[in-house]
Design a protein around this nucleic acid. Sequence first.
DNA 1: ACCTGAACACCGTTCAAGT
DNA 2: ACCTGAACACCGTTCAAGT
Lengths: 236, 236
Amino acid sequence: MTSRTSAATSRAPGTGDHPAERAPLSHERVLRCALALADAQGIGALTMRSLAQELGVKPMSLYHHVANKEAILDGIVDLVFAEIELPSPGGDWRTEIRRRAGSAREVLHRHPWAVALMESRSSPGPASLRHHDTMLGTLRAAGFSVEMTGHAYALLDAFVYGHAIQEAGLPFTGTDDAAEITSAIAAQFAGGDYPHMVEFATERVLKPGYDFGDEFEFGLGVVLDALERLLPDGGA
Amino acid sequence: MTSRTSAATSRAPGTGDHPAERAPLSHERVLRCALALADAQGIGALTMRSLAQELGVKPMSLYHHVANKEAILDGIVDLVFAEIELPSPGGDWRTEIRRRAGSAREVLHRHPWAVALMESRSSPGPASLRHHDTMLGTLRAAGFSVEMTGHAYALLDAFVYGHAIQEAGLPFTGTDDAAEITSAIAAQFAGGDYPHMVEFATERVLKPGYDFGDEFEFGLGVVLDALERLLPDGGA
DNA sequence: ACCTGAACACCGTTCAAGT
DNA sequence: ACCTGAACACCGTTCAAGT
């Protein structure tokens, strides 16, 4: 798509700082850089000024390629949607829906700021629309009625988004520092007002092998089983 | 609790603008006003300066009652948690968990900015801790093992939060303007790239009686049925 | 066509001063 | 103890100017 990128880089004089790249701006380059910045520094660090600096340009130049910051936020949310694997309406619906759910979880884990942002976006981009249409198509092809497709999709994505928001809110990532943080919390509340939290911390979270991520597989299984029962031949 | 409020109001000289109240500041008064401002104008309109003005005070005065803006955000999230009805560990677990889930949904609907904020908060307040402890206690009292309690709570709240984030993202509230917006969208995409979205819009959303809120009862029923099967006597 | 300097109306927060 | 004026280092965005 952006075939001029590498050629244009050569005329950057190497201005010292880390914006080594100096390709000409474009809508896509602005959005790609905004996405990378949000991932690296957090969504709060994504400002028109920091983005411009990262691109080796002055803030006002951005406005020639995007309408405003809102458009940038809409754009990177759509880039996130584009990373989620689409289900294939031809395949086994359970396999396809499971694969897509797992992919959505991975993507939202890579971009933890995205799930909170989705709530406030009201103009979905092309990747979001394609995604929703393919999901609806896959469920319809699986044999769900229009009404049941609505139930199924709402339940599935409530679970996927809800799990993502819980994971994003955890004070730790991975199993290592989980133990450290959890035992600190448990010690703080020991013998106090929150006996069930202490029990859960010591007898579950601190036991070897605990991983909140496992709740995803568990919950997804529950949801898929329930969906299967909604099919016309669900009992069989 | 705040017995001085009405007495202190009388010595306000009525400074003309709508900050008619002029009670002395307090931690609670600052947080209550912040919550009201976020509800009325959106979380983006909640600034130290707008909050101060609403309280009839200068921005810097706020720092005598809260550490900084982060502490305000932590505080109002905890106020939101405090509004959610607690389950009673003594009652029928299904009734109690259902009532609490419905209350959570109502509360998050009243404060649609809250669900996105929860993700980024890492220091839970007393109401949040009380809430989590009571939920864990209710599930344990119902007969769930420690491990199953973790599964059950994770699934339940993934669904509750996920549904809330979907509702908050809808471009309409209520059934009235839903029809208008949906038919505009459907017309825009008619005969285009998104046939399943058009089908769902015309044959489901535009039919009389459609209400996305109904998906909550549907999904909650699915989740509660699944939890019942996790109990030791779940098959019976 | 694309970029930019200067400016505007905002932010959160600190610090030294007032009562 | 509680409040505040002035200031600092930031925001997003507009506008008129440069090439």
